[in-house]
Design a protein around this nucleic acid. Structure first.
Lengths: 201, 201
DNA sequence: ACGAAACCAGACAGCGATGTCTGATGTCAA
DNA sequence: TTGACATCAGACATCGCTGTCTGGTTTCGT
């Protein structure tokens, strides 16, 4: 309270040094990689991959949970940006949805393992976590429900949950290696459009 | 080798005493409960819930992994029985699928956490694990694909994965309490039929 | 009733992981 | 250049969990 700054109150990076910034980035990347190999990778393993000593990780992330939280948050932000960039407001709802889901799927690329790690969390947490994603998608769903492209007899909330579930399922399928990636993407798009509406695009 | 019995070679319960049988059942139930509360519940916690001392658990399940394996196997068998009981071979594919999904949905109740726990496992294990469920569903899917009720341009394996994903999503929605149960079931059925085919039933 | 099987109570060793701390060395920014 | 920041190297305490073992007690099957 004594030294309150007049700056922006939210998302205030407290003037880190350049090397610190680099370390943080390397640690976050290493975490994603490590988790891809082993969903319960230790801090030691993560530090090793980041080319950093374990204590350094703790300098920036006070606890393992904080690190996981940070890396997940960053992933969600990445994907959200992709969704917005795919312009969910442009064109017919079905076509827009196809575009958006395809973009999301591609952007999810390296984060599949992360998805698996977070699936265990409480539904309530998950909802919060995906907040920005859902926020970016909801207007599109509502638009489709209004103009008859998407089923109106089903709640929008369900449409959204089901969308996430299908994308996550596709992610799991990819990890399982049962189907080639290209085929998964095609199947995902078909299924999503059929599930949300009548499948005409 | 020296004392080979002439009995059935597979799935031979080695003549357990009645109280042992009871303990095993209680342990398996307790494991499901415990895992629902915390996906990484310890052996101590599981034993506590089962009203049993920790060493007793180790008598029947030599390692934690073995216990997880056993409890998962039993869950899969339960669900498989439900599916078979719903007669996936009877009637038109869409109608049969509706019946089967509804039955599965009702019976899947307690096993969600278990599913989440198993998502992290090796792809090869998972494939074996879900074998019986997939085996019970696959003929129905293939039948629908052949007679045009279900999309033939999408692999049957995908249809199956996506089915499970939607059922699980519905269950998560229920646990989150955002939607009333009846509405969830209706939405699930609508979505499944639309996803798998054109939604006519 | 008797013996074997299963349980309980509690202790034990071992392991790996988390999180903290020190002091020395390197690196950035003004 | 200088001082604060950041990293390294490695040790350290702690914790919780797994899996094992003992000895004494109960419960089942025959």
């Amino acid at each position: 309270m004594s030294s309150a700054r007049p700056d922006a109150p939210s998302t205030r990076p407290p003037r880190r040094r350049a090397d610190a910034e680099r370390s943080i980035a390397r640690i976050l990347d290493a975490t994603v990689e490590a988790l891809a190999g082993d969903p319960e990778a230790s801090m030691a393993e993560i530090a090793r991959r980041a080319g950093v000593v374990r204590a350094t990780v703790y300098v920036h992330f006070p606890t393992r949970e904080a690190l996981l939280e940070a890396v997940t948050r960053r992933a969600v932000e990445d994907v959200t940006e992709l969704i917005v960039a795919a312009e969910p407001g442009r064109g017919a709802p079905a076509e827009a949805l196809r575009r958006v889901v395809a973009a999301t799927w591609r952007g999810l690329g390296r984060y599949h393992a992360l998805v698996a790690v977070n699936v265990q969390r409480e539904p309530h947490d998950l909802r919060d976590l995906h907040g920005s994603v859902l926020g970016a998608l909801e207007p599109l769903i509502e638009r489709g429900r209004r103009d008859g492209s998407f089923r109106a007899e089903v709640p929008a909330a369900w449409h959204l949950s089901m969308l996430l579930a299908l994308v996550h399922a596709a992610s799991g399928e990819l990890r399982a290696g049962r189907l080639p990636e290209a085929e998964i993407e095609a199947a995902l798009l078909r299924t999503v459009l059929g599930a949300v509406g009548d499948g005409t695009s």
